[in-house]
Amino acid sequence: MNDTAAPLVSVYVPTRNRSALLRRAVDSVLEQTWPRIEILVCDEASTDDTPEVLAWYARCHPGKFVVLRNETPQGACRARNRCIEHASGTYVTGLDDDDFFHPQRIECLVNLYRDHSPSFACSRFRYFQTVSQVTALRDRHHDGAELAKTDTLDLQGLLYANLAGNQVLTELSRMRELGGFDEAMPSWQDYDMWIRLADRFGPAVRARSLLSFVDDDRSRARIRNSSRRAEGSERFIAKHERLMNADQRRNHRNIQYVMNRERPPLGEIVRNVSLGGYKSTIKLLLHKFFGVAIG
């Protein structure tokens, strides 16, 4: 497909004071095999050399970058939404500034979207703490047959767990129709967005190939390791409980027990067993009897 025939894909990147990691993230977008991409970066009042780094990229890649800045930190969701407001693509996807893409990710997801007409397209992802742990996976070339292998993610499955990860590709118009990310959510904003997409537009499709890499460096503060994650879970349940069946509600109750480091009586755990969300029950039992809290 030539550049003029390919639909434009907008990639939003929120960032704050992580210029070295930001370079890695942006470079992974520039290395994509898909021919038409715009990159929108919203700088959350960085005090390091992030503005200079972004100015350099904009000079070196004219017409490909949109650089936005919040003079005071307003949160990752507001930064993402500002990018979405300024985007021009047919499709949109996102990237956190400490993560990176496989070079074939966007091409794969656009093709899956066009072939399957889902609410959104995503891929399998891998956590890493050092890049060396995923170098071979990042550098591996996937043939067309591999990239065409998919799983369907329906709303009922997604209500048990965030099976899509922290980034998906969908139509820009759909993100805007749903009002973007919920800026009132202290965490779980991604999961909330995917549920709203699936509820409005139907099942999603997930590539079985590993095409996204999520930095799990424990030396840095992470939302998923903080009390904000538990608060986000509570708001998520309140927002989407109407969509959940009893088993899904039990599953999320178990997830909250673990996040809040609670050890309910064994009888309560037995009454709260979730068959569809059996992993949350296992995690709760490990936490109760061995003090192991698995995120």
Rank of each mutant, 00 (worst) to 15 (best):
Q32F: 05
L109D: 00
A6C: 03
A5Y: 04
A246C: 07
C77S: 15
V258F: 05
L155V: 00
H116N: 10
H116Q: 07
N272C: 11
P62T: 07
E85K: 08
N245V: 03
D139Y: 00
N272R: 13
L40H: 04
R196I: 01
R80Y: 11
R80G: 09
R206H: 07
A230V: 11
F128I: 04
A148K: 09
C108A: 03
R200S: 09
D97P: 08
P265W: 09
C83M: 13
K239H: 06
V26M: 09
R222G: 09
Y191R: 03
D217L: 01
R253Y: 06
L95Q: 05
N111C: 13
F290Y: 12
G232A: 09
D96P: 12
A55N: 09
I39M: 03
D99A: 02
R140P: 00
R114A: 07
R242H: 14
G277E: 01
V11K: 00
V110M: 08
R196E: 05
R24L: 07
N260W: 13
I223N: 11
F100N: 03
S46H: 02
Q256G: 07
N2P: 12
R208V: 01
R250Q: 08
G179A: 11
V67L: 14
A207C: 03
A184F: 15
R271V: 11
F213A: 09
R228D: 13
R206A: 05
R263Q: 06
V41Q: 10
D99H: 06
A145N: 07
L95D: 10
S10C: 12
V26C: 12
V168H: 09
D49S: 01
A5Q: 12
E234N: 12
C77P: 03
P103A: 07
A5V: 08
F65D: 03
N17G: 05
N17K: 11
S28I: 02
I255H: 14
R249K: 13
A79T: 02
P265D: 11
R220Q: 10
R224S: 04
R229G: 01
E171H: 12
D43T: 05
D97Q: 09
R228L: 14
T152N: 10
S119E: 01
S274K: 07
R23P: 03
K64E: 05
S227W: 05
E38I: 00
H141D: 06
L169T: 01
D98L: 11
D192N: 14
G165Q: 00
A148G: 14
Y160D: 02
R250P: 09
F100I: 01
A25Y: 02
V168F: 05
R126V: 08
S123Y: 00
D247M: 08
I269T: 08
C77Y: 15
V66H: 11
P62N: 15
E262D: 13
S117V: 04
D190S: 15
L68E: 00
